[in-house]
Write a protein that binds this DNA or RNA. Sequence first.
DNA 1: TTATTGTTGGATCCGAGGAT
DNA 2: ATCCTCGGATCCAACAATAA
Length: 323
Amino acid sequence: MWRGGWGPFTRWMDAICSGMTVPADIDLPLLAVFDAIHRERSVTGAARRVGLSQPATSAALARLRRRLADPLFVRTPAGMVPTPRADEIAPAVREVLDTVRMRILARPITDPAASAGTLRLSIVDASALRFLPRIVAHLQRIAPRWTVETVPLQPAEVPRALETGDVDLAVGNLGALTAPGFYRQRLESTRYLVIRRADHPRLRRAPTLRDYLESRHAIARAPGAPPSVLERALAARGHVRDVVLQVPQFLLLPAVVAGTDLIATVPAHVAQAFAGPASIAASPLPFKAPELVLHQGWHARTHDDPLGRWIRATVRAALRVPD
DNA sequence: TTATTGTTGGATCCGAGGAT
DNA sequence: ATCCTCGGATCCAACAATAA
């Protein structure tokens, strides 16, 4: 968000508008307040977002209401709910603000690798285990002043975080990121393996389909996540697992499996990372299932942005994925 | 100088939720 | 049902900074 005052920007806008027939009453700060309230559903939240005090934000909303002759947002138990008029103009407002941010205010990036920056990455445990070491190592080599922050978002939160810019990029199982305005690129795929404790009393060899279905399972599933390709493959065959434990992260499963008679189905890289040290045995799935495809995903907002392009190319290079 | 927009500090209103 | 508390929105006053 814009911080540190609007004075210089107002002057630029006036300079731009003075030579045109466009009336110089475009009030960009008001549009930023509108967009913030529309996103946050709260005047207080919007105030934090745009860096104004809460009364000032409320006053800005009052000015917007006068100018547009519409209440724009009404107070309800669910927050400040936009009126139809507010919903109607919101996409256009966002487009204007994005254009200003990306094409006017953004500093031209001549060499991102030589500058400092922070890569904010939505990535969860198993994908982080797989990709993060290589991404960080590659950044250390080519852009040593860059830092990485990972944000473990629930699948349903990822699109909004990409859209608002709270994260730059999402990496992992992005099967649900198919809405218009989002892009995905395949990074790699991985098969699933079944893990059990190495001294499992019943399963001394790789489990058969019957073993698999008769065993009790620990599974990883984020709250609100759509069924994985594995779950869909099981459902398509009419197989039902006896699930004793559901956790949100794959990385918890090896420890659970090592200490119980439960079995778990995990991406191969998770199984391989824990196979030796934790006395875990890994075997192929006893039925056919598609591989888990891992993507990097981003919002249209950054599709043509030079920095966005550089970030995605950097991730590709780190993982040796061709363009 | 004036108008605008911002600040802080304080007050009020309103609805939700918990306690009685 | 009533009361109380809390959070959030709104309004007001006084003042500061800035552009026209």
